[in-house]
């Protein structure tokens, strides 16, 4: 064995060996720093994505708002950007977004909360082990499939109950959207409830409270901040949902808060324009960026609200 000099059982020769090791250490240090730099740039990349989103939306909207005054955008009651007599009242699209989201939340929040309380406080281990992955699957179905379901299955059923219902309507889209959002609301609320320490429940049971009383008067209040942010996430999903509305709600702009009418939302308008072939740089092309900016501001507002709620109402144990 000629390599016996480097064998650990042999005493290391002084001199060259140590300087070798020291220089190796220096190169090792450089390599470490380079790797750390690379990893940092990967993490920082997400910040650039955000900056790019804001930059693109603001840049194109800026051109849009040079032609269309902001007051028209906010207060006009018509949205006909592709007609000769162009009107740009975002209110029309907002009404569709708000109406469909309201329907969705009326489904998702009660059902999601009940499911969360049930899974966290009532259900046995087995039920929970089956139900949670199932909810995950429900949340994993592509939204275009939900859209298809709303249009071809739910709308005909609703029409037998309510014959005047048009083929495209916000109601059916909103209901299906609500089902789609249930998993988000339920699983986040459940996480919040499970995070409530067992001692609180035990205290409540020791006082003679039943499961339901404990769930409603002890666990739910203690988990308020988490539940609230689950709701906020649900709202933000509903506002940003696109395909269900594009497929099942029709895409005619319609200033209405009546869910039984067809309507366009901010998101479905963007899809509608993208499906046509508007030239790059035309006013029609820029409207979708203005609409997108409105949408981004709305979701940003909800995200911040959720963040604030979590901070403000977090119970510290």
């Amino acid at each position: 064995m000629t390599a016996s000099a480097s064998h650990p059982s042999q005493p290391l020769p002084l001199g060259s060996g140590i300087s070798d090791r020291l220089s190796k250490k220096a190169s090792r240090h450089v390599k470490e720093r380079i790797i750390e730099g690379l990893l940092f740039s990967a993490a920082a990349f997400s910040v650039f994505v955000t900056i790019a989103i804001v930059y693109v939306l603001v840049k194109e909207s800026w051109v849009f708002f040079e032609t269309v005054p902001l007051s028209d955008f906010l207060f006009d009651t018509q949205w006909t950007p592709l007609f000769d007599d162009a009107h740009y009242g975002i209110m029309v699209l907002l009404s569709g977004t708000l109406t469909s989201s309201a329907v969705a939340l009326l489904v998702a929040i009660p059902l999601g909360t009940i499911i969360a309380i049930y899974l966290s406080e009532f259900a046995g281990f087995k039920v929970r082990e089956i139900a949670k992955p199932f909810l995950e699957l429900l949340g994993g179905v592509p939204t275009i499939v939900y859209g298809y379901f709303a249009l071809t299955f739910l709308t005909p059923i609703l029409q037998t109950i309510y014959p005047d219902l048009p083929g495209f309507n916000l109601l059916s889209a909103g209901l299906v959207m609500g089902i789609m959002i249930i998993p988000y609301v339920a699983s986040l609320s459940e996480d919040a409830m499970r995070a409530v320490p067992m001692s609180l429940r035990e205290g409540s049971y020791a006082m003679g409270a039943t499961r339901l009383q404990t769930a409603l008067w002890v666990v739910t209040p203690a988990a308020t901040s988490g539940i609230a942010s689950a709701y906020i996430l649900g709202i933000s999903r509903a506002v940003g949902e696109t395909m269900i509305l594009a497929v099942a709600a029709g895409m005619q702009p319609n200033l209405t808060f009546n869910p039984t009418e067809p309507g366009a939302t901010i998101t479905s308008y963007i899809v509608q324009v993208a499906l046509g072939d508007l030239p790059h740089g035309s006013i029609g092309y820029q409207t979708i960026f203005a609409a997108g900016l409105t949408l981004l501001l709305m979701t940003l507002f909800f995200n911040l609200l959720g963040y604030w709620l979590r901070k403000r109402f977090r119970e510290v144990y």
Partner: peptide, 24 residues
């Protein structure tokens, strides 16, 4: 900032990413 930004990105509707991609 990076952490807040990532959780914020997760909440941005997918169609907004589409607009980013269209412009960028």
């Amino acid at each position: 900032i990076i952490e807040i930004n990532i959780s914020n990105l997760a909440g941005i509707p997918s169609i907004v990413y589409g607009l980013l991609a269209l412009g960028l």
